[in-house]
Structures are given as C-alpha cells and as structure tokens.
C-alpha cells in the first residue's frame, strides 16, 4: 500500500510544463463525477428543465400565435408566429440549462462543498476542472435543446434543412453561456450577489427579440439589444430553423466563440487564484 515497490522517481514531463501546470488532460474525470452525482441526486430537477420551453411554446406559440397570425422574419419572409418564437425558445433552453449548472451549482461547489479544493489536491489542474464543469453545463443545455428541437420537428416548426445546423449552433450557445456563467460565478461571494444573475437573465429572455422582431424597438435601443448574448444566439438559431441564412450569421458565431473564450480564460484564472494560491 505504501508504494515501496513503486518507487519510480518522478519524471517531470517537460512537454506539459508550458501549460504552467494548469492542465492534466483529464477533464473527462470531472465529467464522470458530474454524471454520477446527477444520476444519484438531482436527475428529476434536470429533467424538469425540458418542459419549461415546451410550455412556453404551447401557451405563446399556439395560444397567442392564433391571435397574432404571421410575422415578418428578418429577410422579409412571412412565417407563423410559433415558428418565429420556437428558435428563440430553443436558444433560451440551451442558455438556461448551461447557466443553471454553471452558476448556482458551481457557486455551491466553490463556497460550500469545497469540491474543487478536493479536485485540485489531485493531479488535476484548474483547466481540467473548468473544461469538465463547463462540458457538463454544456451537455445539460444541449440535452434541453435537442429535446426541444424534436418537439419543433414534430409540430412542424423547422422550416428548412438548415435547421440541422441548429444543433451545433445551440451547442455553441450553451458553451458560451456555460463558460461565461462559471467565470462570473467565481467572483460571487454571497447568495445576494447570485441573485443578480437571475435579475439579468429574465429581462434578457423577454427583451432579446424573443417574442417579437427587433424592429419593434427604436434604433438606439436596437443597438443595445444587439449587444446582448441572447439576441446573438436567438438570431443565429432563428436564421437556421427558418432557413433565412446569410453570411451575416458568422458574426453571431464569432461573438459566441469570443464569449466562450473569455469565459474559459476568466474561469481558469479564478480557479487558480481561489484554490492554488
């Protein structure tokens, strides 16, 4: 048990030293842990998240949609109201799944469960932990999105074959929100501060041209809305599911990639500062 028979000396792996001892290439063990924990404790909470966007779609898309009729999408095409809001709900589902895991769950793990302290006492580095936890949040967001996408297909709200690309798109959305969510959470110290996240999320959901076109707003406000990550996500997904695709959607992709990169960088730095001082 002592390792008397395993006295091989430590061999410094110079190839990895460049990474500044931040990454052991073992993020999958963090994902494995998350899967075990979800399986045994809170799978019901996780599953309940699937239904939220479906209820929105039924009440607003079908119910309210009956009154609204058709709306004009970005490229001037006339589409049913339900097909207009469904991609927005899809993007929001991905966002919510990712944000829930990467904010409240991560907050609890940092401040109370001291989970990361335990992880970082092993050969894992902060990048392993960040990638692992963000992957979990991403998987959750993706799970919600795929379930909702199937509902959209069944109800006939995917108007184009481009909708297939909607799946990688929502993965990117989930990744961007999970990274930034975890980065921001690492600065949070109290429940009161965590409430700020809810305070930001709800208005963003309602105002990001989710339920009506951007053109409703006066031009100066349009600029503000366009800067929001959810607007970027909704536009990207909506272009794909409604089939009004142009090269312009690459800007949304770029925005989300930059957001994910920023989130990863901040998260790694913060984990290092918090647990490897």
């Amino acid at each position: 048990m002592s390792g008397l028979d395993g006295e091989a000396p430590l061999r410094p792996r110079t190839s990895r030293r460049a990474a500044g001892s931040l990454y052991a290439g073992n993020a999958r063990s963090v994902v494995y842990r998350g899967w075990l924990a979800t399986k045994s404790t809170n799978w019901l909470v996780v599953v309940s998240g699937v239904f939220e966007p479906v209820f929105y779609l039924l009440s607003l898309g079908v119910g309210l949609g009956g009154l609204v009729g058709q709306v004009t999408a970005g490229d001037g095409q006339r589409i049913p109201y339900a097909a207009f809001i469904a991609p927005a709900l899809l993007a929001t589902a991905a966002m919510n799944g990712a944000v829930y895991d990467s904010t409240w769950n991560v907050f609890f793990k940092i401040r109370f469960a001291r989970l990361y302290e335990g992880m970082l006492a092993t050969s894992l580095g902060p990048v392993d932990v960040a990638v692992g936890e963000i992957s979990l949040a991403l998987l959750r967001g993706a799970g919600y999105a795929i379930a909702f996408m199937i509902v959209m297909q069944l109800v006939g709200l995917n108007l184009s074959w481009w909708a297939l690309l909607g799946l990688p798109a929502v993965l990117l959305v989930a990744f961007a929100f999970a990274s930034l969510g975890m980065g921001i959470t690492s600065y949070m110290r109290s429940f009161q501060q965590m409430d700020i996240i809810n305070f930001v999320m709800l208005p963003m959901f309602l105002l990001s041209a989710t339920f009506y076109p951007l053109t409703v707003y006066p031009p100066p406000i349009q600029v503000v809305i366009q800067a929001l990550p959810l607007w970027q996500s909704v536009e990207l997904v909506r272009s794909l599911t409604t089939g009004s695709v142009s090269a312009g959607i690459l800007w949304h992709v770029l925005y989300l990639v930059a957001m994910a990169a920023l989130g990863m960088t901040v998260t790694t730095r913060r984990l290092r500062a918090l647990f490897l001082d």
Partner: peptide, 18 residues
C-alpha cells in the same frame, strides 16, 4: 471535503479517476 453528492464507494472511484 468529501463529495456529498456521491456515495461512499463512489467517492473513492471518482477520486482515483482524478
């Protein structure tokens, strides 16, 4: 700082995986 979301044996399994 045991992992309270996991069972006793799972704590060991996961830690080894780290």
């Amino acid at each position: 700082n045991l992992d309270e979301e996991l069972r006793v044996r799972e704590n060991l399994l996961v830690y080894g995986r780290y």
